[in-house]
Amino acid sequence: MADPSVYDADLVRRARVAHGAGELRTAQSLAAELWLRYEQQARAISRKRARGDEAEEVLGHLQLRFIKWVYFRQDEPRNMIGLLNQMAAYAYGDVQRHEASQPVAVEEIEDYRQPRADRTFSTILDRAEIDHLMSVLSERERLIIERELADVPDLEVAAELDIEPNNLHQIRWRALKRMREAADQQEWGS
């Protein structure tokens, strides 16, 4: 599977070149494509910070920060999931300031370089590392995850393994927990 980070980096680079050249419509389209590639992940990440309507507000501020990062920052694009997690922490602060009718905190806009103490999956940078995490799974667990990634309906996978859907969900839950633990160990060990 191709490494998506290469495609992401190209989108960011082209968006910045277009923006610098005053081709704003092109820059907007490229930034929009990059956002849509990760919008679902951003929705989930927003819900780590808040619930319900407030989570939607965090998502809105996260989107704004993400777009400004594409247009106006000079640093190299990197793992988008890690970046979104960092931005979400600041976006939550934006929501709180907005609710208090305070202006945005300018000094925080620029700083996404320092790693935060929060647990994130920022170690999952590319397909190679995902493949490494898959190696901690049993053969059956790996098959379940692979079928999910191939968009095979749960009922079909359960029938293939001759188990109940409940069991399938339980095994998948445990498999993901083990992958996350492995990712955490990798992150803290690195």
Binding site: L36, R37, Y38, Q40, Q41, A44, I45, K48, E148, L176
Partner: peptide, 17 residues
């Protein structure tokens, strides 16, 4: 649960809008 959703979405990789 949110973290597991995030991990699942991360494993799927980015969308193709």
């Amino acid at each position: 649960l949110v973290e597991m959703v995030e991990l699942s979405l991360t494993l799927r990789g980015p969308a193709s809008p």
